[in-house]
Design a protein around this nucleic acid. Structure first.
Lengths: 154, 154
DNA sequence: GATGAAATTTGGGGTGA
DNA sequence: TCACCCCAAATTTCATC
């Protein structure tokens, strides 16, 4: 994916956009001390190279009815970890799946409309033949949830 | 924050923007079968009510040099969970902190530039007097990481 | 790569229906 | 809420350096 080496301007541009992706190219150009057309071209490349995967919006899941967040760990039979991970990843309610070291093999974070919804998800996944064990932790509260934090707090 | 009840159009609008927040109001209006000025007003309210928290960009953390992701669980002395959570949340490398049920009290997801960087983070947090125990799992691979998934896959 | 100027769209506000 | 118009500002393209 990356032949693209990013210089300091590129990184600054991504950070500015992570903070607020609606800022005009003119404004960004002014702040970065370059011409608008240059920033426009750089932005285009960043998107093309996949450094910026998507322009999106940070939603309030509570307001949208997703009041339940869960962290679920799975033990999977050796050799089937990626298969299981990819199966789990297909579910739209899953926002993250990590292949992890330690006692468990997969860490999953997902958003649900209700505890019943969570329950049906866990049961669905546990039906897979190569899932050995799972632990479900209900997130009583999301103290922080900001996937841009490393870029926007720095 | 939520006296705002969202109708179907509002939800659709958020979903469309979660998929691509650069689409013009004209285009969104056409797709939703409403006038541009109406969509403009609705969008304004969604931002004002905090249903849309921020316009942002989905970055490729690998490309930006954050090659290490970790899932860390903490056991915290009763009564100090929120304090610990808020302390941890301040670190820019932390993208999520959940107050969870189960054997551990906090689940943390964070991004690091190196394993050393991760190590120093865990040591820093473990110095807190009310942290009883922690388990660090290195994410060998992010099989999925898309915090808009419930909105964009549905 | 970067630039400034030109051509095309868009945002945002207002009006009356 | 809508359809319509307006204008200032933005995006995007392109010839040129």
């Amino acid at each position: 994916m990356q032949g693209a080496q990013l210089d300091e301007i590129d990184v600054k541009l991504v950070k500015l956009l992570a903070r607020d992706s609606r800022r005009s190219i003119r404004e960004l150009a002014r702040e970065l001390g370059m011409a608008g057309s240059t920033i426009h071209a750089r932005l285009h490349k960043l998107v093309e190279n996949g450094v910026i995967k998507r322009f999106t919006v940070l939603p309030d899941y509570e307001a949208l009815g997703y009041s339940v967040t869960a962290v679920i760990l799975f033990q999977v039979e050796g050799g089937k970890i990626l298969d299981a991970g990819e199966y789990i990843a297909k579910d739209p309610r899953v926002i993250a799946v990590y292949d992890i070291t330690g006692d468990y093999d997969l860490a999953v974070i997902a958003k649900f409309r209700s505890v019943n919804d969570l329950d049906s998800f866990v049961k669905k996944v546990n039906k897979l033949p190569y899932i050995r064990r799972s632990v479900t932790s209900l997130a009583l509260r999301a103290i922080k949830e900001d996937f841009t934090s490393p870029l926007t707090s720095g």
